[in-house]
Amino acid sequence: MENLEYERLAWALLYGHIAIIVIGGFITVLSQNLVRALVGLIMTLFGVAGLFFLMAAPFIALMQILIYVGAVSVLIFFAIMLTSAWPGGDESGTISVRKIIFAGLAAIAPAIFLGMAAILKPPPSFLIPDEIEVGILGRFFLEDFILPFELISLLLTVAMAGAVVLAFEMRRKK
């Protein structure tokens, strides 16, 4: 009995998060105002974080919030403010129908293939995932996945350096 209630709750949560993701996605893509689009993206990010939670990976969910919401979207916000702080510089204005059609086609094509693949050929799966310790994850990173880990560190460092170099070039031009 209790389990049934919990299962219902779980489904409700699942669909709730999916709804958030869908709404957020549409806001992100269709909003005329870039900051609102960013808020839509944040909605989506929270929804995805919620799905991670439901998949029993709270650490990844929190990392999603920490990295995406706390860092990436703040950076994008910064970019919006620095490039087009005032109305007119963003996405206002009409967009041609042709463009919408092409964009829609571009989006639907993979949707059909992948969607069919996902529905018709589902791999074996189960309902209840395991939660793993953060420590195990860390050990995994440092033992088995040391190369990707180092690579991503390198990538981040290079990106930082590149950003700094670009920013300095900008300042010099002043």
Partner: peptide, 22 residues
């Protein structure tokens, strides 16, 4: 897949670079 598709749609649809990054 929905996220992928709407992302692709957005890349085509958006005009500003920031919109594309979103």
């Amino acid at each position: 897949i929905f996220l992928l598709c709407i992302g692709i749609f957005g890349i085509a649809y958006r005009r500003t670079l920031i919109g594309i990054v979103l």
